[in-house]
Amino acid sequence: MAPLLQSSQPWVEKYRPKQVKDVAHQDEVVRVLTNTLETTNCPHMLFYGPPGTGKTTTALAIAHQLFGPELYKSRVLELNASDDRGINVVRTKIKDFAAVAVGSSHRQGGYPCPPYKIIILDEADSMTEDAQNALRRTMETYSKVTRFFFICNYISRIIEPLASRCAKFRFKPLSEDIMSSRILHISKEEGLNLDVEALSALSSISQGDLRRAITYLQSAARLFGSSISSKDLISVSGVIPQEVVEKLLIACKSGNFDLANKEVNNIVAEGYPVSQMLSQILEVIVEADDISDEQKARICKKLAEADKCLIDGADEYLQLLDVASNMMRALCNMPQEFPYES
């Protein structure tokens, strides 16, 4: 395959920190890991935390710092969810790689090159339980020559025997200013013009996920050129403008069905994805001060039901209208159903 065009390389890759110490915001993790790197004695590791917080970056950086570019290919195996990771792969590919013996430890080109290999399993929580169990055996057998790095969002989805064999590192969501500084750094490098409003919009729609923020930034840069406003970012992210959500809520509060219906029609015609709408409604409802807990509960219940129906492929318009009419009844303290139906 021909090499990628420079311009089409995702910025997420382009600006991925190459050194553990450059990983943003995860101070404790970085401190411990830097120690490890110095002694080159590293245990099995499990990185967990929300998406876009630097887990994969850290794992890759460690591998690079340990082996350098030359040995990297032969010493490190990366597998993520898009690769086939059924039990058969665990039994063959992973095992084969793990079983290969490596030479003794001697420094090469300034890299420590410890006498083991590293297997990085990204998105490990999407592995089946069977596959994880099979891994456990492999880990024990080849622990002398192989280290495993697990990366996942939800630690609860990793089976206990695996988790207990690893040193666990929790990655926390990035704070807004850390995020902003990274974004600013990238936009300076790429020659983008970002105003303050756009910057804060970006950090709010990406919700502490740096990767998402960078992706949005790149998409916006592609579509709108070097000068990017908050509106552009919102349109690229697929997030629905807050006014639209507010308008629907106001229509519902009015207690007038036809008004709500009109609003729903509008939303669907504008092509806003309803699943996105539901999650934004949820946000607004949960945080609203003027809505009682009971009302919130009623609305949230309906939102959950509708979300499930959408996943099953139900019609967007009917589901949103159902949510809206339900919300209307809840907000206006009408009974949930017409009284004759108990």
């Binding site: 139900a314 009917l318 209208l321 159902d322 009419s325 339900n326 159903e337 139906e341």
Partner: peptide, 8 residues
């Protein structure tokens, strides 16, 4: 709202 509910 009831009809919408059943329709959905």
């Amino acid at each position: 709202p009831d009809i919408i509910r059943w329709s959905a």
